[in-house]
Design a protein around this nucleic acid. Structure first.
Lengths: 161, 161
DNA sequence: ATCGTTGCAAAATGTTTGCACAGGG
DNA sequence: CCCTGTGCAAACATTTTGCAACGAT
């Protein structure tokens, strides 16, 4: 029982169909390890890194090596189902994006939480910049680092002293 | 001849004055190594990484260890004279920012060149997002990855076949 | 004497790779 | 067979750290 059937199963999630299609198109296989990873990536509604995914796999009672985690994340990014971020200089972080609106990020330098936002003008700005530079965009990353409301309460209107 | 005078020299560049002020304010010293690094960082008008700065130091006939390069870059980033970027998952890249207009980046995935742009609406967008989330911004990073005009010529108006 | 700074080498971190073996088409 | 996939361990690249020595105050 190493490799899963290559036929599409009826109860398959939309992202699994997309992933399977991408794999097939590139002559790659829809293996049990890749299925496990896909499932856990789409069960996680946070940003995660490779190590966290590795631990989620173990927590789920499955076994997939770190090497396969990294190799599969690369494929998922290529397929467009997952986005990779490098918010600071530490390790890469990932999030699944299928079924989500495209969004930008706020990154709290104190508690390291990540908040998402959208702004309607950004697509227009990206398009106009790319036009100006004759640049063909593949992806963008807009994030603001700073301090969230919990970590940095706004200054009082009339500071004492 | 290890440590430089702590008095401000008359012919000192503006960035050196700022750096010295920052160091003094934090009980740190304006050492010859830091002076060398500061000079080379401000002589470089490209984005660079720690290794490139290390080689620039040797090329200049000076000797500063890698450890000191890293430690000093951290201080320069803290002082606000230098910006650190992690465009992709490779190593951190730096650029001096004193005396430059704030700008965003285009990053060519093929030739890895970096182009700079500004857009007048971005400050306003950042302010409105931060207001909405009660977020105190420290810095932002907006970059678009894709293919520059040289690496990806626009498709012909009437593609043959 | 104290305290921050340095260079060196070792350690730590995060990621990639070589390899031998497995298994489906 | 042939090809891709896997786990493991080793390799790798970048960055950080422990430590002894050093110099300015």
């Amino acid at each position: 029982m190493r490799h899963a059937s290559s036929r599409t199963l009826p109860g398959m999630s939309k992202e699994a169909e997309i992933f399977q299609g991408f794999l097939r198109k590139n002559g790659l296989k829809f293996t049990p390890e890749r299925v496990i990873i896909l499932r856990l990536v789409f069960e996680t509604h946070e940003h995660f890194d490779a190590e966290e995914l590795f631990m989620a796999v173990r927590r789920a009672g499955e076994r997939v090596s770190k090497a396969t985690i990294y190799r599969t994340l690369d494929i998922l990014v290529e397929s467009g189902l997952v986005r990779r971020h490098t918010f600071d200089d530490r390790q890469a972080r990932y999030e699944h994006i299928f079924g989500h609106k495209y969004h930008e990020h706020l990154h709290c330098l104190s508690c390291h939480r990540i908040f998402e936002f959208t702004h309607e003008d950004l697509d227009r700005i990206q398009a106009s910049v790319c036009e100006r530079y004759k640049f063909t965009p593949a992806s963008r990353s807009f994030f603001i680092s700073g301090y969230c409301s919990r970590c940095s309460p706004p200054p009082l209107p009339h500071p004492e002293t």
